[in-house]
Amino acid sequence: MLETDRNQLHKCVEEALPELDMMIGWTRCDPLQTTPVFIRDAKSISSLTLGPFCSQNLAGYLVKPPALDAPPKPDAKPIGICVKGCDSRSLVALIQEKFITRQRVRIFGIPCGGTVDWRKVARHVELGSVKSADVQDRVLVIEDSTTTHRIALEEVLSRKCLGCRHPNPVISDVLIGAEVSPRSTGMETSYRDVDELDAKPLEERLAFWQSELDRCIRCYACRNACPLCVCQDRCIVETREPRWLTQHVGVPEKFLFHFIHAMHLAGRCTGCGECERVCPMDIPVTLIKEKLNKIMEEMLGYSAGLDPEAVPPLLTFNPGETEI
């Protein structure tokens, strides 16, 4: 099935490439992982891949170099991009906020059955010795030098995938492969981790975040990987004027950094989980944003990245809401 989808992707990209400025997709770089690739040359199309190892959200590259080397000319060709369900929501959010126009992108939508989190794979096998990996019938089959490991895909899916409500792209020009049914349809299943933490007493929640955020090394990978962290080089955590954060490495600084990240994404975060995926210290960064997403949904009935015409809730208001 994966093979057919990949062939379909190659064929579609081959047809579209002459009309495109470039194509952004994934290529396999390791048995368990992919790396983003920027294709301008038809020769490289065959390196494109899709499937459960394509964990990166590529939408961010549209608002950062290389896609955005310079402001696009009016006659610029569109950029082709592969998106999973969650990635497509980031695209919609970028269109909403007018960072890109719909015409600027040619969207190759890929229905997604969940992506593999290599950290969870590491609980089962030694990553460095993996020779090959493949997914067959929702089972991850890994071969190392001596044995074949078979792990249920459920056990190694990224955390964000477990409560996924939009596995199919919400916006696309071409759909590659068949649509899949969502794993979750309601808030109860989507915000299970948030609810679990919320059920604990306040002191335990504080202790939890202290112990998690204490590991933060402030490499800012979570920020840079976020497709909606559009300030990039102008981010207030690094500017000296205004001066929000010191160079101290204490827990307060780390708390404040994650507050800044979260509050700037309130009502905008599409829950793609990039911040958590890229964290070298395995901090559940997305969980912070999930809570805010839940608040937005409960309080204002809004989920980010579904409607290109909608305005993010904190960028607008309603005089009538006396009791929010």
């Binding site: 948030v194 933490l197 919320d198 306040l202 002191e203 335990e204 929640r205 504080l206 202790a207 939890f208 975040w209 202290q210 708390f255 507050f259 979260a262 509050m263 309130a266 009502g267 912070i288 809570k291 805010l292 608040i295 937005m296 309080m299 204002l300 809730p313 904190l314 208001f317 809401e321 929010i324």
Partner: peptide
């Protein structure tokens, strides 16, 4: 604008302890 932001923030604070 402030009302929405502060309501959201008020609901968010206890999550972080």
């Amino acid at each position: 604008y402030a009302r929405r932001r502060m309501e959201a923030f008020k609901a968010f604070l206890p999550f972080m302890g």
